[in-house]
């Protein structure tokens, strides 16, 4: 069954995420971070930051609320039972600090089919309150039985 490519280029409404100090500390602890920049406000301030610093991979936390609606969009048509997260890319422009508000927008970058597999790439762009780029992610999904 060929995949439906009509959704290529579709862009979803922006999602705002308020970066919280305790959420950063929780994520840092769950991913094994020991750098005090992520865990200790005093250490982060001593290093010149306004508050604790998000580990780079904290991008998954503020991008996921934007990616979710695209994955569930009936027009994209992903069969969740067959979904595999096959790859991930992030490009970081700068560090993220607790207290910031970030705005993330997801768009459908590519949909293709090969050998019975459907490939879905979502481009996810996060900007700060000034509209400056913070992080760009490419979320790559594979759907079996396409």
């Amino acid at each position: 069954m060929p995949v439906n490519t009509d959704a290529i280029g579709k862009r979803y409404d922006p999602v705002v995420y308020a970066v919280g100090r305790e959420k950063i500390k929780e994520f840092a602890a769950a991913t094994g971070e020991t750098n005090p920049l992520h865990l200790d406000v005093a250490a982060a301030r001593a290093a010149g930051h306004a508050d604790v610093v998000a580990p780079p991979m904290f991008a998954v936390v503020y991008q996921q609320p934007s990616v979710g609606p695209a994955l569930f969009d009936p027009e994209v048509g992903i069969d969740f039972a067959m979904l595999v997260h096959s790859g991930q890319e992030f490009r970081w422009e700068r560090l993220v600090i607790a207290g910031e508000e970030l705005t993330t927008t997801t768009s459908v970058q590519a949909i293709s089919e090969k050998g019975g597999l459907g490939f879905y790439d979502f481009e996810v762009a996060t900007v700060d309150e000034a509209g400056e780029p913070v992080v760009t992610g490419i979320w790559k999904m594979l759907v079996r039985g396409a």
Binding site: T31, G32, E33, N35, L37, H38, V53, A54, P55, P56, M57, V84, H85, S86, G87, Q88, E89, F90, R91, W92, L95, I138
Partner: peptide, 24 residues
Amino acid sequence: AQVARAQTEAAGGPQALRALSVQF
């Protein structure tokens, strides 16, 4: 995140990591 941490710990901090791509 463990792959990312290996990079940032080797480089001396999170500011050093500019990009990371992986296959699961």
